[in-house]
C-alpha cells in the first residue's frame, strides 16, 4: 500500500496535470515519483509528456476540458451536476475547505471546484496529516464524482498522457482518502 506521503505526491501531481499539462511543470515531480510504488506509471507519463508534438497535448487538453466551441467534459464539480452549472454548491464548499486551511488558489478566476484544484488539495490534506474524519469529509464532499468522471476522460482522450493521467486519478480516488496507509 502506498505511503501517505507518496499518495499525497501523486494527488498533487494529478491535480497539476489537470490544471497545466506542461512538461515545465510536471517533469521534475514525475521524475521523483519514479521511485514510488507506481514508479512505472510515472515513467510512462513522463514518456508521453515528452514525446510527440507538445501542441497535440495542448489541443487535446482544450478539446476535452476548455474548448470555446464545446468542451467534451468540463472538469468542474458543479458542471457535473444536473443541470450543469458553474460556481454551484461544490465551489462554495471547496472555497470553505481552502479557507479553513488558510490557502486559496493562485488563479482567482478559476472556480474552486476544478478537478485539478480538488486533487491537489487532497494531496495537501494528506501531506498535512489531516485527521481521518477530515479526510473522509473531504472525500465525501469533493471526490466521489471523480472516478466516474475520470473513466469518461480516459475513454474520450485521444492523447495517451491525458488518458493515462485520468485513469491514474480514477484509481487514486477510487480508494477513499481516509483509507491511506500511515
Amino acid at each position: 500500500m502506498m505511503t501517505r506521503l507518496d499518495r499525497a505526491r501523486w494527488f498533487q501531481m494529478a491535480g497539476a496535470g489537470f490544471l497545466s499539462p506542461d512538461a515545465n511543470v510536471l517533469k521534475a515531480p514525475l521524475d521523483s515519483l519514479r521511485e514510488t510504488e507506481w514508479g512505472e506509471e510515472a515513467s510512462r507519463l513522463l514518456q508521453w509528456l515528452e514525446s510527440g508534438d507538445p501542441l497535440d497535448l495542448q489541443r487535446e487538453f482544450v478539446r476535452l476540458f476548455l474548448s470555446p466551441t464545446g468542451a467534451v467534459l468540463p472538469p468542474w464539480q458543479s458542471a457535473r451536476e444536473d443541470p450543469p452549472r458553474l460556481m454551484g454548491p461544490a465551489h462554495e464548499s471547496a472555497t470553505r475547505w481552502f479557507a479553513r486551511w488558510g490557502v486559496a488558489p493562485r488563479t482567482p478566476g478559476e472556480p474552486a471546484d476544478h478537478l485539478g484544484l480538488l486533487l491537489n488539495f487532497a494531496g495537501f490534506l494528506l501531506e498535512q496529516e489531516a485527521s481521518a474524519e477530515e479526510l473522509a469529509a473531504f472525500h465525501q464532499d469533493h471526490l466521489t464524482w471523480v472516478p466516474a468522471f475520470c473513466e469518461r476522460v480516459a475513454a474520450e482522450a485521444r492523447h495517451p498522457f491525458l488518458a493515462h493521467l485520468a485513469s491514474l486519478a480514477g484509481r487514486l480516488t477510487a480508494q477513499r482518502l481516509e483509507e491511506t496507509a500511515p
Binding site: 511543470v25 481552502f98 479553513r100 488558510g102 486559496a104 493562485r106 488563479t107 494531496g123 495537501f124
Partner: peptide, 11 residues
C-alpha cells in the same frame, strides 16, 4: 507543486 497552484490566505 501545491504552492504553484495555491497561496496562503486569511484562514
Amino acid at each position: 507543486l501545491f504552492g504553484q497552484f495555491f497561496q496562503p490566505a486569511a484562514a
